[in-house]
């Protein structure tokens, strides 16, 4: 069984994001980028499936500008076998990405597709669900445990009230939550080896999909900053302020 994993290049989670002076977008110049953390978990899960003898090949896919290749190299260094890069300068939204992945899935015929549950830039949390819908496959979103056996993926999902377990007929789409696994660091030898692994570049035209965005960003702003309040000397002072000033207890 082939496993396809979608990965996204995002502003690193440690970076303090700033808005451009004209309010048109977020500042991306001279900012550190890395693989979306949920996608690292997705790659890790796929590589573990290969190590367990369940997956035969792990294919990483990314869409975006030339620099997205770096993210694919990271995926290859973590253990993916090869990569596909759909090169485009367009602003990519979840529906467009899902459409492109659908075409790639039709060509590659994976038994499982794993994605991060959300990207930490647009926080959309949509692509996996949309891809499952377009393929008419089952979906196991927000997965904290995945067991593959006998043509079924048994997926434990983190839901608001706790957790639930679903049995999904394969092929299926899974999106990762934080506690599915702890992604490995790529070792130096594996980083070197990854440089020789193939990345196939293609264009949206090669896939025959329309990637035009459906949502137009009118402006971006920074929310009002919360002001730091006061330090209180002890518990008695805290209770007094909460009772008499804030009036919340």
């Amino acid at each position: 069984m082939k496993v396809l994993v979608a990965v996204k290049r995002v502003i690193d989670y440690n970076v303090k994001v700033r808005v451009k002076a004209d309010g048109s977008a977020v500042e991306t110049a001279n900012v550190k980028f890395s693989m979306n953390p949920f996608d690292e978990i997705a790659i890790e899960e796929a590589v573990r499936l290969k190590e367990a003898g369940i997956a035969t090949e792990v294919i990483a896919v990314s869409l975006g500008i030339t620099a997205a290749q770096e993210t694919l190299r990271t995926a290859l260094a973590m253990g993916a076998d090869r990569a596909i890069h759909v090169v485009t300068d367009l602003e990519l939204q979840p529906l467009a990405v899902a459409k492109a992945l659908k075409v790639i899935a039709a060509r590659e015929q994976p038994g499982l597709i794993i994605l991060g549950k959300q990207a930490i830039d647009d926080d959309a949390n949509q692509t996996g669900q949309m891809l499952a819908a377009l393929l008419n496959w089952a979906q196991g979103t927000f997965a904290s445990k995945v067991v593959i056996a006998d043509g079924t993926a048994t997926v434990t999902r983190e839901v608001d009230g706790g957790s639930e377990t679903l049995a999904l007929t394969l092929p299926a789409v899974i999106t990762t939550d934080l506690r599915l696994n702890e992604p490995r660091y790529a070792s130096l030898p594996n980083i070197m080896k990854a440089k020789k692994k193939p990345i196939t570049a293609m264009t949206p035209e090669d896939l025959g999909v329309d990637l035009a965005p459906r949502l137009r960003t009118i402006k971006v702003t920074e929310p009002d900053k919360r002001q730091a309040g006061v330090k209180v000397p002890d518990v008695a002072a805290l209770v007094d302020l909460l009772t008499n000033q804030a009036r919340v207890i």
Partner: peptide, 23 residues
């Protein structure tokens, strides 16, 4: 925008060929 809503709405949007607007 609960885990239920987030699980379901993108699936509906994709089949209607429309964007989904989150949170």
């Amino acid at each position: 925008a609960t885990t239920q809503g987030k699980n379901l709405l993108p699936r509906i949007a994709a089949l209607l060929d429309v964007a989904q607007i989150s949170e």
